[in-house]
């Protein structure tokens, strides 16, 4: 059995009494790439910060790279690479100066050569003397990635690394992630992009601080046990509006199409029945997409919370 890079149980964090992360348990085998998905404010960043030893959990226990997240936070910091959501390097330092600073902090041997090698590896060599603040979004993200992997961490925690980055740069970024994974690095990357979720070995979906689904994309889609119908045509917005109030049914408009999903096929059939005769719409049953599953997950979680409150 492969060792676990992340093995936490019941991880909980409260901010002023409110549980931002609520009993999250994760077992990430070494060498896998995991996608961490969930709406804004669902607790992704807080979870990642607890994993890398930045934040002390209020409850739960576990290890990162075999190190206890409560007792050995400092050791974890030395062995984990954490890329913050916001660009957090010095905009008034050059690319090389930023990397040199990080190399010094980690007391890397043969610092100069390491910095050069890192710049070569991520293609920043020609921009070594450019101020980090003047880099475009994609290059900033590369610099940040370069900085957090320079000390050769065995675990990378990347918090929305591709937010605001163009598709080309995202593709190259993911190529780099997979290259790292081939070298045995474990990667946990939070994202809002469905296509990025599909590039991961496994995904974890979190909402309101709770993990709602864990597994491969296929497993998560299958696990939701969702039925989906797609309506295409000019009347889709009307239908979406009227179906929005139906309990147990989730809707999402994708361009010309409307996706309607529910766990109970009979509920779904009954809900769409009044609109089946609409001559402006063409209906067909379809496999639910990952996004349909996420919309369903968040909507049922919201409904459950409202019911509880």
């Amino acid at each position: 059995m492969t060792p676990l890079a992340i093995d936490v149980e019941g991880l909980t964090k409260r901010f002023s009494g409110r549980a931002v992360v609520d009993k999250v348990s994760l077992k990430v085998p070494a060498g896998e790439v995991w996608g961490f998905l969930g709406p804004n404010g669902s607790g992704k960043t807080t979870t990642i910060r607890m994993l890398c030893g930045l934040l002390k959990p209020d409850g739960g226990r576990g290890t990162c790279l075999g190190l206890d997240i409560l007792a050995e936070a400092d050791a974890i910091k030395r062995q984990v690479g954490y890329m913050t959501q916001r660009f957090s390097f010095y905009e008034d330092l050059t690319v090389r100066e930023n990397l040199d600073f990080v190399a010094r902090l980690y007391a890397l041997p043969d610092r100069r050569r390491q910095v050069e090698a890192t710049m070569d590896r991520v293609g920043l060599a020609s921009r070594r003397s450019q101020l980090a603040g003047s880099l475009s979004g994609g290059w900033k993200q590369r610099l940040a990635l370069a900085a957090c992997m320079m000390h050769a961490p065995k675990l990378l925690l990347l918090d929305e690394p591709t937010a605001g980055v163009d598709p080309q740069a995202r593709r190259e970024f993911w190529a780099e992630i997979h290259a790292l994974a081939r070298d045995g690095v474990t990667v946990l990357v939070s994202t809002h992009y469905m296509d990025e979720a599909e590039r991961c070995d496994r995904i974890a979906y979190i909402a309101y601080g709770r993990l709602l689904a864990v597994g491969t994309v296929k497993e998560v889609v299958a696990g939701a046990d969702l039925s989906t119908w797609i309506a295409t045509g000019p009347g889709r917005d009307d239908v979406a509006r009227r179906l929005a109030r139906v309990p147990g049914v989730a809707t999402a408009v994708f361009g010309p199409s409307l996706h309607v999903s529910a766990t109970d096929p009979t509920v779904l059939r009954r809900a769409i029945e009044p609109f089946r005769g609409d001559p402006r719409l063409a209906w067909r049953e379809a496999e639910p997409s990952l996004e349909d599953v996420f919309i369903h997950l968040i909507e049922s979680a919201t409904a459950a919370r409202e019911k509880a409150a």
Binding site: C52, G53, L54, D74, K77, R78, Y82, T84, R86, F87, S88, F89, Y90, E91, V102, L105, Y106
Partner: peptide
Amino acid sequence: ERGTMENLLAMPLN
């Protein structure tokens, strides 16, 4: 303010 503190704290620096 610039968010660099988060990074500093995540590195082996007390």
